[in-house]
Design a binder for these strands. Structure first.
Lengths: 248, 248
DNA sequence: TAATGATTCAAACGTATGTTTAAATAGGTC
DNA sequence: GACCTATTTAAACATACGTTTGAATCATTA
């Protein structure tokens, strides 16, 4: 569980047997594992989801995961690929659509974020297989070891993120490009919080969270990250200022 | 590990023996456990830190944790109390100091966030025991089960959060109060991302993160969350709009 | 010094984990 | 119908986990 060799297999059958037949008999099993894994990983977290709970939910044998994917970590990668690939296509398409409308003009910042988030929302609202938990799953990933996290991000978010950061850099020509990339990472933090399922927690006394629709949440977080990423570069330089009271 | 009874003990010796002596012989052991736990929980995550790794790092016997704290979960609570209590005092003090300067005028938003974050930064820079990882530990908490997370937030962040949300509401009288509370949660997401140690990951192709000081990070995230929380309430209402292309 | 209770210690308990194995089954091909 | 191989199955493996136990040790008081 601590090496990444399993990730190199991309997805596709764990290559124990080379020659594959036309239509796989185990394709059904594969899919049921992917769908159950997506749901459980997203809801309960990755490391707290045991292979036994997972295979029970999928209605397949315990050993099926290792037969079809090779390891739990490779399964995680396959789940993300399974869902992220079409979602990323939708994201790029939405960005291109907006760009086409505006000809050569730079896009509006909120439209860029909307193109990024709409496909995620959409997958939550009406998913093909009945349960698309990808956004929450991505939020769960933040708890993974840094090497795993970096590998997954680079593989499944790298290209799409680059495209959106470039669009944001064009939309905000007055800000340093590196600052935009840095702030985009902070925006992802807000977005993940929204999807983590923890944003509903009632922990601010006197402000129990309101029950709002996912669409309202979307617009709420878009407004927030748009304001954040468009903020003027900080005038104040940090050091010198210090708070007086500290651990006594 | 799934019930919260252990949390009810607050911190203090696991009450197996009622009558305590003047100066505890085990106080040293207690402290070494707390400090090692803080560091390991923050660096490697809570559930991936075993009691054996923890007690080895602390140089104490495996059973000492249960003797002094009762359980791993109660230890987590004690660690947070140990560090959060003085940090929260510093936060309130910083907020009060700023308020005193401005008499009855509402505070600037960025000053409010600075009062919230400075003590956290400060604890990272120069900590009493040599290793203060509380901010990163809080970021790790996001991966905990919701019940645990909510209990810890209410206990250790509730009061201070309420104070800061109130200050922000005064500073931004044009925005609905509930919106401020909601956005504060999103701001926490950005802040936790910054402290998670994952913000350094190189996953945006062509934009490897720059090595910047913690003070610069602080000002960067303050600018971001200030812009985010001050953003105008979203004009656009969500439904109706939908992205065309989707999972094929 | 003897006694008492707080603290430490090595060892074990019971359970859960990801993974592997080897036999059984199924389904298409000759 | 026999053969071959992809797939499924039940069982076991090896290890790691949080927790508990009971005896040993230590410091303090009587």
């Amino acid at each position: 569980m601590n090496d990444l060799h399993a990730l190199s297999g991309r997805y596709g059958r764990h290559d124990r047997y080379e020659h594959a037949r036309g239509i796989m008999a185990g394709e059904e099993t594969r899919k049921r594992i992917l769908i159950a894994a997506e749901q459980l990983f997203a809801e309960r977290g990755i490391s707290s989801t045991s292979m036994r709970a997972l295979t029970n939910a999928a209605g397949v044998n315990l050993a099926a995961v290792h037969y079809h994917f090779g390891s739990k970590e490779a399964l995680l990668d396959a789940v993300i690929e399974f869902r992220a690939a079409p979602m990323n296509l939708a994201r790029i398409a939405a960005l291109d659509a907006h760009a086409a409308e505006r000809a050569d003009e730079p896009l509006e910042v909120d439209c860029i974020f909307r193109a990024f988030l709409m496909p995620a929302i959409h997958s939550v609202i009406e998913s093909p297989e009945g349960a698309a938990h990808l956004p929450r799953l991505f939020a769960r990933l933040e708890a993974q070891p840094p090497e795993v996290l970096e590998a997954i991000y680079r593989r499944h978010l790298g290209d799409v993120t680059r495209r959106f950061v470039e669009a944001l850099q064009k939309a905000l020509p007055d800000l340093p490009k590196e600052l935009i990339a840095e702030r985009f990472r902070l925006a992802m933090g807000s977005i993940f919080t929204l999807f983590s399922g923890n944003s509903e927690l009632d922990f601010i006394p006197g402000h129990s969270p309101q029950v709002i629709s996912i669409e309202e949440k979307l617009e709420s977080v878009i407004a927030f990250v748009t304001g954040g990423i468009s903020a003027p570069a900080s005038a104040r330089r940090a050091p010198g200022q210090r708070v007086e009271e500290n651990t006594p």
